[in-house]
Amino acid sequence: MTVLFWILAVVAVVAGFAVFRLNSMAQVTFALLASFLAVAGLVMLLGLGYLGVVIVLMMVIEMVIMAVFMVMYMMNPAGLMPMAMYHNKSGSMAIAVGTFAVLAAGILLTDWPTRRGAPAPDQTFALGEALMGGQMLTMMTLGVTLFATIVGTVVLATARGRYDRFGDDLDRRRADDPAGGGPG
């Protein structure tokens, strides 16, 4: 267990650091993914199997999509040219190191309370019950927020509205899209 912890923790931190050190955009994304996967492993190590697997599932999807966007927007995505796009590097470093020092001091100096209670036998079930019971409000908020995100992102990202697609009087039967595949 301890060995596994050390391996995963080191992978998580090193991969995380590699995110801002590697030259290739694609490799950066997958370094971030490796960091997430290591954290997912740590979460599973703590007995949260379901959440660990869900993190794997979501982060893989998220990172691949991220890779696609990155390739779309960044110059020479394959890292043919060394990439250095920083501003205020030293200041950021100072802030980051300072934050870490404060956090570490807090972690090490705090007198943490002792463990109370034991995990439920089926964590997945407990979590589901919580989300559908006591934490229902959280779940509803998340749902509504996600829906708002879907609408908001689509509005932001597309330049075409329904008047572009269906004509000025919205009387076109089939949408005028540059490519098929949309619900029209």
């Binding site: 997958f30 199997g49 379901y50 869900v54 794997v56 599932l57 893989v60 999807i61």
Partner: peptide, 17 residues
């Protein structure tokens, strides 16, 4: 695994990446 089918799906998604 108690979360077997989710595990299965996560591994399939890894293959996708």
């Amino acid at each position: 695994l108690s979360v077997g089918v989710v595990w299965f799906n996560a591994m399939e998604v890894l293959a996708w990446a």
